[in-house]
Design a protein around this nucleic acid. Structure first.
Length: 194
DNA sequence: AGGCTGATACACT
DNA sequence: GTGTATCAGCCTC
């Protein structure tokens, strides 16, 4: 039986959490059924001191408010027409989060195909905006918590895998932070975003 | 490689 | 109110 990750799992800084989340199972339940995927790519956003983070300088708005909340909270936001999903890290009032950039489909392949019509399977979840569409994650998940339905994270792979790091994607014009190797992904996985 | 899309938030008039 | 930028993705050239 797949084990649900508990609150303590999330109570670490975003760098540690980003690495810990690789190989875990992200599960979304909707009226249509369950869809899930193994997390294979993440990025850490280190909060007040991170030029690339929405919460840089402790910028606290309605959008970023949840980043100041409890670890394991769900932070979703809109990028153009796409929804991106994050996991809040660290303690309350330390606004760090981990962006989930790619997953490998596990359950609900039929649902994913229906939600990503006309695309090849590898294109269903190999990007942060794509995986939310495929799994049915939306802005309505904002403020929820990964220890309760309908959006949860479970223990995933039990086997070993190799982790690779690199610079984050899509964060030009943010000075030094641009080069930090705060992106983590599973070596050789087909579903990494680039 | 480059342009279009266009939800939000926020910094400005 | 207007302008601009954003942790993309898709389509077209």
């Amino acid at each position: 039986m797949m084990q649900l990750l508990d609150q303590t799992f999330y109570e670490k800084n975003a760098l540690l959490l980003a690495e810990s989340l690789l190989g875990k199972l992200l599960v979304k339940d909707t009226p249509e059924g369950r869809a899930s995927g193994i997390i294979v790519e993440t990025e850490a956003y280190m909060g007040a001191d991170d030029r690339a983070a929405h919460s840089y300088g402790n910028r606290r708005t309605r959008r970023t408010e949840i980043m100041f909340g409890k670890a394991g909270s769900v932070y979703t936001y809109q990028m153009h027409t796409h929804t991106l999903v994050n996991v809040v890290a660290a303690e309350v009032d330390t606004p760090q989060a981990v962006l989930i950039r790619a997953v490998e489909p596990v359950e609900g392949l039929d649902l994913m195909e229906k939600r990503r019509p006309g695309r090849k399977q590898v294109e269903w979840t190999n990007g942060p905006g794509k995986l939310t569409k495929a799994l049915g994650i939306a802005m309505s998940d904002y403020g929820s918590h990964y220890t309760v339905p309908p959006l949860q994270i479970f223990e995933g792979w039990s086997h070993d895998f190799e982790i690779v790091t690199g610079p984050r994607i899509g964060i030009d014009n943010t000075g030094e932070a641009k080069h930090y190797p705060w992106r983590f992904f599973v070596k050789g996985n087909r579903y990494i975003s680039r």
